[in-house]
Amino acid sequence: MKSITKTLLLASALCSLAGIAPAHAQDKRIKVAMVPKLIGLSVFKANEKGAIAAAKKLNIQFLYTGPVTASAQGQVDIINSLIARRFNVITITSNNPTQPAPALERAMKQGIKVVSYDSDVAPDARDFFIQNTSYPAMGKAMVDSVEQYAGPDAKVAILSSTPDAAIQNAWLGAVKTYMTAHFPKMTIVTTQYGESSPSKSLSAGLNILQAYPDVTAIIAPDGAAEVGAAAAVKKLGRTGKVFVTGASDPDSIRQYVKDGIIKASPLWNEVKEGELVMNVARLAADNKLKPNDTFTVKGLGTYAVKNKVIVFSKPLVFTAANIDQYHF
């Protein structure tokens, strides 16, 4: 018993030593997990690709693990297992802001750093949040695309993921604000949901086109929804009459961009975002990042931290001209 106590004391002494010796912190190998909303989705795979590349440079033992379906409960199970396995940093894009929060708070209490990216969790449940792109910029990019191809008096339908998806609602809020401010004649005729499922999104897209024949544009700010909307337009032969825009990875929409159904679709560089996530994870683990701060990452640029939020980049708009440069 005594020897155990001694070992524990020694270990904690060593730990605290490591804590006050930041000069060597970069040398210390850390374990960082990346938890996507679900595994097997290409946008998240693109994050993983960038993260793996960055992890090598940053002396990070990297793990990519997520639930099979887009369920927050599945993410909680995984967070719990990562706590038990003593990871140093958990990075996560959450299926919803509330459910994973208690588990993440538990992790933070045990000294694990939490970095959310893409879709945020409750602010108390993470150290930093990497926002893909500023919400107003994303909303502007989508509305501008509608205005350019369907005109300033377009009748717009919205096809989103779920009624309570945090990021989609933030974008749609920005869409509405920008639309009423700049194109008052543009109207939103309906809002429907495809639950991020390709088949449900397709049938929701068909519903929209059949129920509202005067719709000239669909804004679908979700990977599955944009593909579903474009597929519905193609299926009903409305190419050239209905334009689709939204947020999706280039691989999924390439075909529809070439068909002319999607003319301009904003997103951001998911691979580079994965790199940034790992860099922030490293900085957080080394306690080198303050809630309001700036930092520079070689090859990515300089970023500002404002109230623990880091905006990753301006929207990257995919068009027929540039889409073949991007593969993810």
């Binding site: 369920s71 927050a72 909680v76 919803n96 509330t98 459910q99 929060a101 208690p102």
Partner: peptide, 13 residues
């Protein structure tokens, strides 16, 4: 109670 939140799809699994 466990999640300190409710969701309409929380029972699915």
């Amino acid at each position: 109670s466990y999640y300190d939140a409710v969701r309409p799809d929380m029972g699915n699994i």
